[in-house]
Design a protein around this nucleic acid. Structure first.
Lengths: 226, 226
DNA sequence: AGTCATAATATTGTCAACAATTTAAGCGTA
DNA sequence: TACGCTTAAATTGTTGACAATATTATGACT
């Protein structure tokens, strides 16, 4: 994230984050401190520091005197996350409509253009689309200018959302519909209509949540985005 | 919190949390690792672990190779927090109306009775009232049964709210009004009216936020509660 | 006198070894 | 064979010392 070489703990932390998100470190697997330290060529001290951050990100679960394991994902927890996203990103959209700069909204519009192009070219489910969706939402969150909101969503929730997408193969089954909703939200922000932006964002995430719930009770093989 | 003696880091962490909240460790003050470790009779290893948790709680701010300082409170950040509380506790109230058990609502009602009694006896601003308010809100949050929501509010936001109250002397200037709003929320939860509970909670916290904003531009000497 | 470079000090980052607890294995007995 | 206890191995928690970086103090030069 930052250019100057930070502490070993930070660097290793980011690597492990990626390993957890992508499933290289599987769900529920135990993290052996000496082994992990040796793997990354550092000592146990910085590694434990990195693990503290992973715990703060809710990516691992620690039990005193027993050890740490990668969190196990469940549909119930995914719904919990989406309930929170609905409330928090609704707020973010409202604030973004009030506080986003002209250049920021322009960049957001450009991003949507790129998404549209990619959806037309590659019919859905690409890596780009998944990350691109996170990009869209994260830009709005940043546009809220509420630093604490940015931290909560960026540090705690989005990594978990990415993790679900990778490991549950949550590629969108309605990319064009999601894009349409993104465009509506973007328009509301451009016009500075805070109330509408919040309402649209809440409905947008609510749609995704309801979609998850359907596939959830139908089968253990889901298909969902946003 | 838990009965068996946990790790040194946990114990010291809770002590430092209290020191920060109450102002024993002043805002912006630098945390000297060897000194703090010596003070609490532990080594730097566990102390750094404790500091990582304080960082996750947003009570201290760390800069690589420079050190950690207690956060500095500002009205802008207080408003940020209340914006988030409005969204998140609105969600909590809605879920609580759906998921709270009968015994939980009864206990909530009892708590409000105790508050009423205390307000009549001691006209406002007591320590009990401040903590009692946090109790009320935290019970609703727990009643939501959304574990992640409980963690975010309990671990990150409520400690900061308590910190503001202690150090800005944010005793309520409208205790009876706040109590009335609490009773309304409690009634909506008892009746299982999720929508109303959410709306009332959002207005309740929104009132507090607007109250803060008034005193904020008026002077640097505020008076506000929940 | 003021400012910049340099050296001394203090603080953070990192490491390897020790202590305490937990987990697994081994053994004996019913 | 299954169960419980004892003992050994492995893992986490903790400590003190060393290395790297930042902060402060000192002194030379304009």
């Amino acid at each position: 994230m930052t250019q100057p070489t930070i502490s070993l703990a930070n660097r290793v932390c980011e690597i492990i984050v990626q390993d957890i998100v992508t499933g290289t470190l599987p769900q529920g697997s135990k993290l052996n401190e000496p082994e992990l330290a040796r793997t990354h060529g550092i000592s146990r001290g910085p590694l434990r520091e990195a693990m503290s951050r992973l715990e703060a990100m809710r990516l691992i679960k620690r039990i005193p005197n027993v050890g740490a394991s990668v969190v196990s994902l469940s549909y119930d927890e995914l719904l919990e996350i989406y309930q929170i996203r609905e409330a928090l990103e609704g707020l973010a959209a409202r604030l973004a409509a009030q506080n986003m700069s002209a250049t920021e909204t322009q960049e957001l519009r450009l991003l949507l253009g790129a998404h549209e192009k990619h959806i037309k070219q590659t019919q859905g489910q690409s890596y780009f689309q998944q990350e691109g969706d996170v990009d869209f939402h994260y830009r709005i969150v940043q546009g809220s200018k509420n630093q604490r909101l940015i931290n909560i969503l960026g540090d705690e929730l989005y990594n978990l959302v990415r993790m679900y997408r990778y490991q549950f193969s949550l590629s969108s089954n309605r990319p064009q519909q999601a894009l349409k909703e993104h465009n509506q939200i973007c328009a509301a922000i451009e016009e500075g209509d805070a109330e509408l932006a919040e309402w649209l964002m809440r409905r947008h995430i609510g749609n995704a949540r309801r979609n998850i719930m359907q596939h959830m009770q139908a089968d253990a093989t889901p298909a969902e985005d946003l």
